[in-house]
Design a protein around this nucleic acid. Structure first.
Lengths: 231, 231
DNA sequence: TACCAATAATGACATGAATCATTTTATTTA
DNA sequence: TAAATAAAATGATTCATGTCATTATTGGTA
C-alpha cells in the first residue's frame, strides 16, 4: 500500500457486502428475517445525523452521500455506491446514534438490518467480526489520507482529487455524468461554491477537462493527476 | 453521545487495554509469549510510517504522538497516553505497513505484540474482536469530529480545543506542564507556528490562560470553551 | 410557452492565516 | 561559563480563498 493513501482526498469505499459470505446459513437466515428492504428516491434522506441507529444500512442499489452538518455548515465525508455498509461505527453501543446523515443522489435501495441482530452475530462469529474490522480499518486509513490532503493541499489539488476519484472509482470511466452540483462538489472538496466554479472553469479553459451539459470528460489525465498530487 | 463529537478537534483516546480481559488464560499466555516490552526515551521513534507493521503496540507508560508526514509537511493525528493500542488498522493485511509514525513525548514503554498472533486471536475470539470493533468505531467517530472542526473552525477555536483537550483528557487538571513546543502545537492544530505563538499570546493577554515556564494554567475556562465551540 | 426557482457564473472586495525576515529568549553541550 | 543551537516572539507583507452582490442560464412545472 505504501503511502499512496496520502495522495487522494476523495473517499470511496470498495464493495463490502462479500462479508456476508462468512455467515452460516442460520446466521444469514436470521439476518434476512430481520431486515427490510427500502427504496429511496433521489434526494431522500436515508439516515439522519443524531437519530437513533436502529439498523445497519446495506446499500443494494444507487449512490448516496454521507455528510456531517451543524446548524450552518456541511461536510461531505464520502460518497458510496452499492455494495457498501453504512452505520458500522454504531455497533459500538456508545455510538448509538448516527454520527452522520445519508442522502440518496440517485434512486437507491437499501437493506436495513436490525442492529441488535447484526451485533449479536458479530459477537458470535469471529471470522465475520474480523471482516468488519477490515472494513473499519480500510475506512480509517482512507480517512487519515483524506484528512491529510484537506490540511495540506490547496483547492486546485482537492478538486482534481474529487474529479479523478469520481472518474476512477465511482463511474470507472474518463467520461461520466456528474450528478453533483457545484455546491455539492464544494461540500465534498471543502471549499466555497464559487471557488469550485472558478476552478472548474480554469480546468476547462486549460483543456484538462471538458463539460457538455452534465457530462464531464477528462482530457488531460496526466496533468490533472499532477495537480492532484499537489501542483 | 449526541453531536458533541462535532465540537472538539483534539483526539485523545481513553484507555483500551481492558480488551485483554476478554481473553482466555491460554490466549493471554500466547500473547505474553509473543511480545517484547521496549522502553523509549523522549523523542525516540516507536514506529515509522511506511515500515512493516509487525506488531500491535500497547502503550504501557508515557505519552506519544501519532502523525502523518510527507516529504515536507506533518499532521499530528493524535496524542496517546498509556493504556492505548496503536496499529490496529494494520490488522487488515492490506494495510500491512504503519500508516503513521509514532514518537515518544516523554520516556515511555510499550509492549509490542506479534501482529499475527494478535490477528489469530481476533479471528477466533468474537468477543475480543467485538471490543476491537468498538475501539476502531470510537476512533472513527472522533476522527469525523476532528475533521469537521478542522474544516469549519478557524484557528482560535482549534487552538482552544487543543488546550482544553490536553487539560481535560491528558493531564486532567486546569494546570499542567505543556510538553509540546509551539511547532508541535501547530502541527496538532493544523496551522503555522507563528499563528500558534500569536494566538497563545492573545489568550494570555486576554486572561484566558497564564503561562509560567512550561506550566500552563487555564484561567477563564468558560470563555475558552466558548471560543472552542466557535467564537 | 411563460414563469419561477434553483443553479451557475462573474467581478469586486475583505480577511484569515501563511510566509519571510529579523530579533529575543531559552536550552544544550563543548 | 561561554558558545552554539533551538525555540519563541514580532512585524511586514503576500496570498489563497471566502464573502457579497449581481447577472445569466437552466430546468421544472403551472
Amino acid at each position: 500500500m505504501g503511502n499512496n493513501f496520502l495522495h487522494n482526498s476523495c473517499t470511496v469505499s470498495l464493495p463490502q457486502t462479500q462479508c456476508f459470505d462468512l455467515l452460516s446459513a442460520e446466521e444469514m437466515q436470521e439476518i434476512e428475517e430481520n431486515l427490510v428492504e427500502v427504496s429511496y428516491k433521489k434526494g431522500e434522506t436515508i439516515a439522519k445525523q443524531g437519530s437513533f441507529a436502529a439498523y445497519i444500512i446495506c446499500l443494494s442499489k444507487g449512490l448516496v452521500r454521507i455528510y456531517i452538518e451543524n446548524f450552518k455548515e456541511t461536510l461531505i465525508l464520502k460518497i458510496l455506491s452499492s455494495g457498501n455498509l453504512i452505520g458500522l461505527p454504531s455497533l459500538y453501543e456508545e455510538n448509538s446514534v448516527f454520527p452522520y446523515s445519508v442522502i440518496a443522489y440517485e434512486d437507491s435501495s437499501a437493506k436495513l438490518i436490525d442492529i441488535n441482530v447484526f451485533r449479536k452475530i458479530v459477537k458470535n462469529n469471529a471470522k465475520f467480526a474480523f471482516k468488519i474490522i477490515e472494513i473499519l480499518s480500510a475506512n480509517t486509513i482512507q480517512l487519515y489520507g483524506r484528512f491529510f490532503c484537506f490540511e495540506k493541499k490547496q483547492s486546485y489539488g482537492r478538486l482534481a482529487d474529487i474529479i479523478l476519484c469520481l472518474s476512477g472509482f465511482i463511474y470507472k470511466s474518463k467520461k461520466f455524468e456528474l450528478l453533483l452540483s457545484r455546491k455539492e462538489l464544494a461540500e465534498l472538496a471543502g471549499m466555497s461554491t464559487e471557488s469550485v466554479i472558478r476552478i472548474m472553469k480554469k480546468f476547462k479553459d486549460e483543456g484538462l477537462i471538458s463539460e457538455n451539459g452534465k457530462t464531464v470528460k477528462i482530457i488531460n489525465y496526466d496533468l490533472l493527476s499532477k495537480i492532484s498530487q499537489h501542483g
